[in-house]
Design a protein around this nucleic acid. Structure first.
Length: 226
DNA sequence: CTCTGATCATTC
DNA sequence: GAATGATCAGAG
């Protein structure tokens, strides 16, 4: 019996974990068949296909805005593409970066901290030589940052957000941040949003998002799977 | 446009 | 080869 899409949100962490475990070892093609959808030939378009398919099987409220995937459980869902040795192939998107009205916000109340407090990681084969339909899901696991990881994330966030608050958003590059960095996050290069300029004036700049570096997520996977 | 789900593809 | 900056689809 293959799993079927969930018709409601999980009522407990246990339920969520069990649903996720039931998917381990299955391919996207098998899941797509159960969900009556087609797996794209490649992810050049439909980059979010895997995550959205997972949401359906786990019962996450799709399209929910700026919140955890399972708000009642306080858990965020993240798929993570890995190579044959278990190394992450991509950085992990965390959330949109606020560029305006950032004066009062602090790390503990930030969206990044909120989302990373509890994450259900679902590894998936991500090698581009494997057709998407054949890519199999790995063993899911629940993670929370340990003291060291928490301190690094906090420091990175504070460094980046200080630049935003001081009107130096355009000095931010993806090279900043040990574990967490900031990069463009938009439909294309023409997208612009408001931010604070060097003189405190309003400027237009590319929207940004927070992402976890692969070195950081590799450590999470190593801690879990040794 | 904002924000979710992310991967692509050029640059380094 | 890895990493940075660019890009794709859909909901609201």
């Amino acid at each position: 019996m293959l799993p079927v899409p969930a018709d409601r949100a999980p009522d407990s962490v246990n339920t969520l974990i069990k649903r996720a475990q039931a998917l381990a070892g299955l391919s996207l093609g098998e899941l797509a068949l159960q969900a009556n959808v087609q797996v794209p030939e490649h992810f050049r378009r439909e980059k979010g296909f895997t995550g959205q398919l997972l949401e359906r099987f786990l019962g996450a409220e799709a399209g929910a805005k700026a919140q955890q995937d399972f708000p009642d459980l306080g858990i965020e869902l993240k798929s993570i593409p890995i190579d044959p040795s278990g190394q992450p192939l991509e950085t992990t998107y965390v959330c949109y970066a606020p560029l305006l009205g950032v004066a009062g916000i602090d790390w503990a109340s930030s969206n990044v901290c909120n989302k990373l407090r509890h994450v259900l990681w679902v590894p998936i084969e991500g090698d581009r030589s494997i057709p998407p339909a054949e890519r199999r899901l790995g063993t899911p696991f629940l993670w929370s940052p340990n003291a060291d990881q928490y301190a690094i994330l906090k420091a990175d966030w504070e460094e980046l957000m200080e630049r935003v608050a001081l009107g130096h958003v355009d000095s931010i590059t993806a090279r900043l941040g040990q574990a967490l960095h900031m990069r463009p996050k938009a439909a294309d290069g023409s997208a612009l949003t408001d931010a604070i300029g060097q003189e405190g004036q309003r400027i237009r700049t590319r929207p940004r998002g927070f992402y976890l570096r692969t070195t950081f997520t590799a450590q999470i996977l190593a801690d879990q799977f040794g």
